[in-house]
Computed example of a mutant assay.
Amino acid sequence: MQAAEVKVSPATRLAEVDLVDVGALIADAQLEIRYAGSHNFVGTPVTGYEAPKCYLLRPVAEALVQVAADVREQGYRLRLFDCYRPVRAVQHFVRWAHDLDDQRNKAEFYPNLDKSVLLDGYIAETSGHSRGATVDLSLDHCTADACAELDMGTSFDRFDTLANTDDPRIQQAAREHRDLLRAAMQRRGFRNYPLEWWHFTFQPEPTPQTAYDIPVR
């Protein structure tokens, strides 16, 4: 039987557990940290996100630096939506999911689902993100003038089977973009979660039994 996760106190500093600032390591990454703002399924800044920053455990961050270098050679940049996620943020998600009266962002994030089913496979009561080895991301294509996010077939955090990485309904261009992202991540040790094209976990996880609850600052 797998041991239960141990939660690290919020009084602990991020640096004490070697959670490092990915934005400082990958200067050209686009940080679109959704839960630090209001453009997310909850519709408000999420508890525990006090700054729009991406933290990962050092070995994971170093692997992501390698991914960034690989895709940069092909004219792409990383767009980061979420990285380490405090336990308190996950608890905020669960409270929101139980509040069936709050439907403000249904049209964008779960148009084809009743909110009552989101805790059944879409929103987890514990998250691998809290272990500091999981990242949600996409790719931007860059020219001399600007960068623009690739079409991945759905937006980030779309609660729908269309977001499954290999969903057969996705158009060819978007399928190729998903394959490009998955191949780049797999090359450096990240495994995709098949139900979400954007979700990758580094293998092996450095601290697989530790859930951190330190605010992102």
Results as ranks from 00 to 15, higher is better:
Q2R: 14
E5I: 03
E5W: 00
K7R: 15
K7G: 06
V8R: 11
R13D: 09
E16P: 09
V17D: 07
L19Y: 02
V22Q: 07
V22W: 03
A24D: 07
L25Q: 15
D28F: 01
Q30V: 09
E32M: 10
I33Y: 05
R34C: 03
G37K: 11
S38P: 10
S38I: 09
S38C: 13
S38V: 09
H39I: 08
H39R: 12
P45S: 13
T47Y: 06
E50D: 12
A51L: 05
A51H: 04
P52R: 01
P52G: 11
P52L: 14
K53D: 00
C54R: 08
Y55D: 13
E62A: 13
E73T: 11
Y76Q: 02
L78S: 13
L78V: 13
F81V: 06
R85K: 08
R88C: 05
V90F: 00
Q91G: 01
Q91W: 03
Q91K: 04
H92M: 09
V94E: 04
R95G: 04
A97I: 00
D99R: 05
D99I: 07
L100C: 02
D101V: 02
D102S: 04
D102R: 07
Q103V: 00
A107M: 02
F109I: 02
N112Q: 14
N112C: 11
D114T: 06
D114C: 03
S116E: 05
L118W: 04
L118Q: 06
D120H: 15
Y122S: 05
T126E: 01
G128D: 00
H129Q: 03
R131Y: 07
L137F: 14
L137V: 15
D140I: 09
D140W: 15
H141A: 04
H141I: 03
C142A: 04
C142I: 07
T143L: 05
T143G: 10
A144I: 01
C147E: 10
L150G: 11
D151L: 12
G153H: 11
S155G: 05
S155K: 03
F156W: 12
F156M: 14
R158L: 00
D160P: 10
L162C: 13
A163M: 15
A163Y: 05
T165H: 10
P168S: 08
R169H: 08
I170H: 04
A173M: 12
A174W: 04
A174G: 08
A174V: 09
H177V: 11
H177M: 06
Q186R: 14
R191D: 05
R191C: 05
L195D: 10
E196G: 02
W198R: 07
H199N: 03
F200E: 12
F202G: 14
F202H: 15
Q203L: 12
Q203C: 08
P204C: 13
T207A: 13
P208N: 05
P208L: 01
Y212D: 02
I214Q: 10
V216M: 00
